[in-house]
């Protein structure tokens, strides 16, 4: 049985599991440790950099540029818009991916029918979808959502399909012999059994969603971090470009950390974290 070794955990009853929050804290700490080289590099840049350089302004100027953007009221709404698109698209892509992937995994006939079509769609690079979607749907939030979902769908779909196919036959038979209804089988047995596969898919899909969201914003100049970045570049504001890159990087980093924490919480009962 697991006991707290180095974390100063509050006295939990003997033999009890450490709360998941400590696992999350561990994850954050190990992630921060991984950031140390990057921080060292930035410090070095700050010390050796020339604050008048038009191409490589030191980090302190990025901060100044970001504060300017915040004060002008552009940065926070842009971050929120991008976050909203990414979150909504991930939720949609996960629901669609689990639904379609589950059906394809369960039915070999359906897999044969849909396989080639899905394979074709999957290999289309998401940037090439943007013009098509813009033509058909128009340049609006729906189009952006569509394009992000289109990119983020596949990892969830494929992982769910594989997950369904690798469900153990004994588990399926146990479900049958317990005579559970269709809904009970889904919610009590199949979804929890597939959760690890689904979450792996979501973890792969999240960075894709961010990439495509920024891309769509840059290509269409719809509000968001991508548009802000492109405008800064067009204004030759190198400090702001670097500053926004930091924001984008942190954005992905935090989203990934949040998903990791959710995963370790959700899979705790399965003993897989």
């Amino acid at each position: 049985m697991m006991t707290a070794v180095n974390a100063p955990a509050p006295a939990v009853a003997g033999g009890k599991e450490r709360p998941w929050i400590f696992h999350a804290a561990d994850n954050v700490w190990s992630a921060l440790q991984g950031l140390l080289p990057l921080i060292a590099l930035l410090l070095l840049w700050q010390m050796l950099g020339d604050s008048r350089s038009p191409y490589f302004p030191p980090p302190s100027t990025w901060a100044a540029a970001l504060i300017d953007r915040t004060n002008s009221g552009d940065l926070i709404p842009a971050v929120l818009v991008t976050l909203q698109s990414v979150a909504a698209a991930l939720i949609l892509a996960t629901s669609l991916g689990v639904g379609i992937g589950g059906l394809i995994g369960a039915s070999p006939a359906l897999a044969r029918c849909l396989g080639p079509t899905l394979e074709f769609l999957r290999t289309l690079p998401p940037p090439t979808i943007v013009p098509v979607a813009a033509l058909i749907i128009g340049v609006n939030e729906t189009m952006k959502l569509f394009v992000i979902v289109f990119a983020a769908l596949w990892p969830v779909l494929l992982n769910t399909t594989l997950g369904v196919r690798s469900l153990h036959p004994t588990l399926l038979e146990a479900a049958r012999s317990l005579q559970l209804g269709v809904v009970a089988r889904m919610t009590k047995i199949f979804l929890p059994a597939l959760l690890p596969s689904i979450l792996t898919g979501v973890r792969v899909a999240a960075p894709l969603a961010i990439i495509v969201s920024l891309l769509a914003e840059m290509l269409t100049l719809m509000p968001g971090l991508g548009a802000l970045l492109l405008m800064a570049q067009r204004n030759f504001n190198a400090a702001e470009v670097f500053g926004l890159l930091t924001v984008v990087g942190s954005f992905g980093f935090i989203l990934n950390a949040a998903l990791a924490a959710f995963e370790s919480w959700a899979l705790m009962p399965q003993g897989r974290t």
């Binding site: 036959p169 588990l171 317990l178 559970l180 209804g181 009590k188 929890p192 009962p269 003993g271």
Partner: peptide, 27 residues
């Protein structure tokens, strides 16, 4: 009621003993 040889795959690992036992009757 059926009992399988492969208990590791017949049980739901994410449910406690109590909730595994309840599985067939809880509804």
């Amino acid at each position: 009621a059926m009992v399988f040889q492969d208990y590791a795959h017949a049980l739901l690992m994410w449910r406690t003993v109590r909730r595994n036992v309840a599985l067939g009757v809880e509804g």
